[in-house]
């Protein structure tokens, strides 16, 4: 009937093969900065996740501490336990290395969870605003505008304060991490909503969405199955950069003393404790947690920068 059509030229590739051959992976392979940042971020994440196995000491267990080890200098043996303290110990004899490992685990958990929370909220609202339009769009986007005109940390403080007022005092400790995640998450959703709305406005007029509407597919499946995969790219970049910001935001809140309780120190809490010793000579109590925070946030941020450039066809 019609001209013979050649058989498919190349067999379809598997997922891994496609990834290894993709422009994205190529761009990663050829960018020393991305490889370095990726390695540092991956190693720190891995070490934090395996804190229970790697740490010489369970830093949160008061029974594991020996007051005689207090103020041990880096690379010296503690007087009490006779163990080696690579990064030194604080006043209670807590090993700084262990504290950093456990602390960055908490920082990462709070960071990832709050980013996930704001991602779901922001992407959902952005999709809704872009696809439905009208008053719903106007309402969502004006709230986003108002929120964006305040610094994120202020919003987080506000949410944190309101939440503490609502939760009975005896549950403050156990709920602290959840409240922190929600507070940071709520302070960051607006960016996602804006970005997603903008790409949704472009995508929803493309013919593949029209073709789906023609089949009578209702709005929710159209948004989730057709639009979401196509607007996710730029969001991923923001999420990566925001992960670094969320970790810093958590550290700031904990530094201010409104974050996680002292019994579960995060990197921010460690820095708060450490600063009292800044002028008394015990510099390691402050320096190493601060360095860990900088290294973690910087490597994730650089990774996000690289991802943004790699996904932006104009810069290539």
């Amino acid at each position: 009937m019609h001209a013979p059509v050649p058989a498919p030229a190349a067999p379809p590739k598997g997922r891994l093969a496609r990834f290894l051959d993709s422009d994205l992976f190529y761009s990663f392979r050829t960018s020393p900065m991305a490889i370095l940042a990726g390695t540092v971020a991956a190693l720190m994440t891995l070490a934090a996740l395996l804190a229970g196995l790697l740490a010489p000491q369970n830093a949160f267990d008061p029974a594991a501490l020996n007051l005689m080890d207090g103020y041990t200098k880096p690379l010296e043996q503690g007087l009490g336990s006779q163990g080696l303290f690579v990064l030194g110990a604080d006043a209670q004899g807590r090993d700084i290395l262990s504290a950093i490992l456990f602390g960055s685990r908490l920082s990462l958990v709070v960071g990832v969870a709050s980013v996930a929370f704001s991602l779901v909220l922001g992407v959902g609202l952005g999709l809704l605003a872009g696809y439905v339009g009208g008053r719903i769009e106007a309402l969502i986007m004006r709230i986003a505008d108002i929120q964006l005109s305040f610094p994120a940390i202020l919003i987080a403080l506000l949410v944190f304060g309101v939440a503490r007022g609502l939760i009975p005092p005896h549950r403050h400790e156990e709920m602290a991490v959840v409240v922190l995640i929600i507070a940071i998450g709520l302070s960051n959703w607006a960016q996602y909503a804006r970005t997603v709305r903008a790409s949704t406005l472009v995508e929803k007029n493309k013919d593949y969405v029209q073709a789906a509407r023609l089949l009578g597919i209702s709005p929710l499946p159209v948004m989730l199955k057709h639009l979401l995969p196509n607007v996710a790219g730029p969001v991923l970049v923001i999420a990566t950069i925001n992960l670094a910001l969320a970790i810093i935001e958590e550290a700031t809140l904990s530094y201010l003393g409104v974050g996680v309780p002292a019994t579960q120190p995060s990197l921010g809490t460690l820095i708060r404790f450490g600063q009292q010793y800044l002028f008394s000579g015990e510099w390691w109590i402050l320096l190493f947690p601060a360095l860990a925070l900088v290294l973690l946030a910087l490597s994730i941020n650089l990774l996000g920068d690289w991802l943004r450039d790699a996904l932006n066809p104009k810069l290539r």
Binding site: K206, D207, Y208, Q210, A211, L214, L215, H226, N230
Partner: peptide, 25 residues
């Protein structure tokens, strides 16, 4: 009733495999 669109680059969801696209209706 069905429709064929002008721009074949925009009328197929770029994130879907062809078999899923054709099976959608």
């Amino acid at each position: 009733i069905q429709m064929i669109f002008q721009d074949p680059y925009a009328s197929l969801n770029p994130r879907w495999r062809v078999d899923r696209i054709v099976a959608e209706p």
